[in-house]
Design a protein around this nucleic acid. Structure first.
Lengths: 215, 215, 215, 215
DNA sequence: TATGAATGAGTATTCATTCAT
DNA sequence: CATGAATGAATACTCATTCAT
C-alpha cells in the first residue's frame, strides 16, 4: 500500500509520519483516529498523506508492518535463548515485557485491534501475533516434553493457551493502566518479583516433578 | 437515563429495542455503533429512540445496566456454591461460561469497552466487572487459605490475578472466535474437558499439597 | 384559536398555563421557545396544549391577546388624566412604566417581537401597540396645540415620533438590563428623577414658550 | 475563527459567501438562520462552510467583525467633523444614516441581536456599538458644554441617552419598515427634512440659549 | 510532487405536530 | 377529554477521500 513517493522521502520525515500515526492510532484506535489531526500535527498537506498510503487503511497497514518488523528482533533473541524450558519461557516473557515497555503505543494498538471488528488487516495482524504461540511457544514446549522437563501427560494445546494467556495478561497489567490498576506501574523490582511468581505458578502447573527442584 | 416513555412500552417492543441495541453495540462498539442503523433495523422513527433514552449514551447505559442485572443471577449462584475451594472455583467458572454462552453479545460489548477509551460509563462498567474479583474471588481464596486447602505461602494478589486472567482468557477463547480460534466453538463436552484441564493447572499451582490428591 | 376546551378549564389552571407560556416566550422568544419545556414545566400532556390552542402559534396568540387586554387598563387611565398637556404626557409615561414594571415579561416579549421577522401575529401585535401613538398620543398633542400649550409650528408626525421614541427608550433602559446598562435598575426615586429630566427635555422642545414657565 | 482556507479563496467568492451569510442572518437572526439554506443558496458543499469558519458561530463572528470594520469609516469621518456642537451632531447622524442605508442588513442584524439573548458574541457586539456613545457622543457633548454651546445645567448622562435614543430611533424609522411605517422609505429630501426637525428638537432641548439663534 | 479546497454522505440530536388509546 | 407514543424533517457538524492547481 505504501507508495514509492513515501519511500523517497527523507528518512527522518518518514519517521515523523510513522510516529504521528502510531500515536494517533494508539490513542484512538483505527476508527476514531483522525487523518485531520495527523496532518495538522505533522504540518503536511492532507493530500500528501493519501499520496503516501492511498487511504487511512493503507497508513494503518504501514504501522502494522512496522510493528511486526520491530517485534521480530526480541522474538529471535528469545528463540535462541539457552537453559531449561522454564528459563527459556522466562526469557521470552522478559523479551515481551521489554518490547511492550519500549513500544507501549504499538502494544496499545494491538490491544485495541483485538476486540475491534471491522478494523482493516485485523486478521493478518492477529495471526501474525498468534504466530508467536504457534511457531515459538509450541515448539519450545514440545522440546520441553522431549527433554522430560514437562509432565508427560500435558495437553500441549492447553499448555500453550495457559502460558500465552498468562503472559499476555501480565504484560497488560504491567503496562496498560485500565486493565488491572492493582498491578500497573510497578517498580522494576516489583515487576520482576511478579514475573518470578508467575513463573513459579507455571512451573508448578507444568513441570514434570511438580516443580520441586525450584524450592 | 431511560425515560418513562420506554418503560410504558409493550414489553416485547422494549425487548426488540434492547436486542437491536445490544446487537449494534456488540458488533461495532460504542463509537462506531449507529443510531441510524438501529432505528432502520427497528423500523421506528429516529425521534422515538431519543425519547426513550435521551441520547446514544443513555441507550448504552441502559444496555450496560441490563447486562449487570443479568450477571447478578449467576454470580449469586456461584457465591452460594458448596464444596472445597477448587470445586467452588470451578462452579464460578462454569457460571461465567454459562453467562457468556447465553449472552455472547453482552460479553463482546464488555470486551470492546475494555480497550476502548472515551467510552461513556467505561469506568463504572469496568469497576462493576472487576468487583467480581474483589468481592467474590478474593474472599473465596482467603477462605481457602484459612481452611488449609491453598498453599500457605501464596501471594493473594497474584493468585487472584492469575485465576481472574485465566478464567477471562478461557471464556474469550471458548466464545469469541477471533481471540483463539483453536479453542473456539468446542462442543459442550470438549469445553468441559478444557475447563477440567484448566482447573487441574490451577490446583497444581495453588493447592497446599501440590494437588496430589487430585491424581 | 383558543378552543372551548381551554375555556372550560379551571381558571387557576388556565392562569398557570398562561403564566408558563409567558415565561417561556419572554425568555426565549417565539422560535426558541419550546413546547416541550412548557408541558414539562406544567406537568400536562403535550397533546393537551395542542388541544387548547391548536399550535404553538395559537398559544402565542393567546399570550398576545392577554397582553393587549392587560394594557388596556393603564391606557384608559392615562387617557382620562387631567392637567396640561405635559402633565398628561407625564402621567401616560408613568402608566407605561408601571405596566412594564408589573409585566416585565410581556414587555420583553414585545421587544423580542419588534425585530424578529417570521413571528406569527407580529403585524397585528405591533399595530396594536402602535395604536397607542395613533389613538392616544396624537390626539393628546393635537389638543395641546389647540390649547396653545405647544408650539404652533410643531410638526405633529415628528412630535409623536419623538415622544414615542423617547418614552419607549426610557422604559427599555429602566427595565431591560441589556439595552442601556447605565440606566437600568435605578431606585424608585432615581427613576422618577430621570422621568422628570426627560419631561424637561420634551417641554423645552415642544412647549409654546420654550418651557419657561417650567423653571 | 475564520480559517486560512477562507482567506485563500478568490475575493469574489469570499464576498459571495459573506453576502449570503449577511442576508441569512439579517432575515432570520442567529438561531433561525440555517446553514443548510446558506450552502444551498451558495451552491457549495456543507463541509466547505464549516472549513471556512469552524461553526455557525464562527461565521456569525466573521459577519460581526466585518460590520464593525465597515462602521469604522463613517465613525472616523464624523469624529473629525468641524463646526459647532449641533453641526457635529448632525453630521454624525448623517454618517449613521448613510451607513444604515448602505448596509441595511447589517443594521437589521444589530437590531435582532439587541433583544435576542443567547446569541454568541452578543455582549462584545453590543459593547462595540455602545462604544459609539461612550467614546464619541459623550466627549462631543462635554466639549459643547465647555464651549458654552450647551446649557450649563445639563445632565450629561441624560443628554447622551436622549440623543443616542433619538438617533437610533430615527435610523430605525427611516430604514426598517416594521418599526414606524409612517416614516419609512421617505425620499432623500424628506429624510433630510426629518433630520432637520430632529436636530431642531435637540437644539431646543439642549442649547444654552434655548436655540434662539436657530430661528 | 505537494498542496489544500471541495465534497457529500455520514453523525447525533431536536421539536412541533398527530392520533390511537 | 386527556394522554403520551410516534413521527420525520430539520438542525449543526465531521471526515475520509478526490483532484485541479
Amino acid at each position: 500500500m505504501r507508495s514509492k513517493t513515501f519511500e523517497n522521502l527523507a528518512p527522518e520525515k518518514q519517521e515523523r509520519v510513522l510516529d504521528t500515526a502510531v500515536e494517533e492510532f494508539a490513542q484512538h484506535g483505527f476508527h476514531q483516529a483522525s487523518v485531520n489531526r495527523m496532518v495538522k500535527q505533522l504540518g503536511i498537506a492532507k493530500g500528501s498523506l493519501f499520496k503516501y498510503f492511498g487511504s487511512k487503511e493503507g497508513l494503518f497497514q504501514h504501522v502494522f508492518e512496522h510493528a511486526v518488523d520491530l517485534f521480530k528482533g526480541p522474538l529471535k533473541a528469545a528463540r535462541n535463548a539457552e537453559g531449561d524450558t522454564f528459563d527459556r519461557l522466562r526469557l521470552s516473557l522478559m523479551a515481551g515485557l521489554e518490547f511492550v515497555q519500549q513500544h507501549p503505543r504499538l502494544y496499545r494498538i494491538y490491544l485495541k485491534v483485538l476486540f475491534q471488528e471491522n478494523v482493516p488487516f485485523r486478521e493478518p495482524f492477529l495471526q501474525q501475533v498468534r504466530g508467536y504461540s504457534a511457531k515459538f511457544l509450541r515448539p519450545l514446549l514440545e522440546d520441553g516434553m522431549r527433554r522430560g522437563e514437562l509432565r508427560a501427560d500435558l495437553d500441549l494445546d492447553m499448555a500453550v493457551f495457559l502460558i500465552d494467556g498468562l503472559f499476555d495478561r501480565l504484560l497488560q497489567s504491567l503496562t496498560v493502566p485500565e486493565v488491572h490498576p492493582a498491578l500497573h506501574g510497578l517498580s522494576q523490582g516489583d515487576a520482576r518479583q511478579r514475573i518470578d511468581q508467575l513463573m513459579d505458578f507455571i512451573r508448578r502447573a507444568l513441570a514434570a516433578n511438580n516443580g520441586e527442584q525450584h524450592a
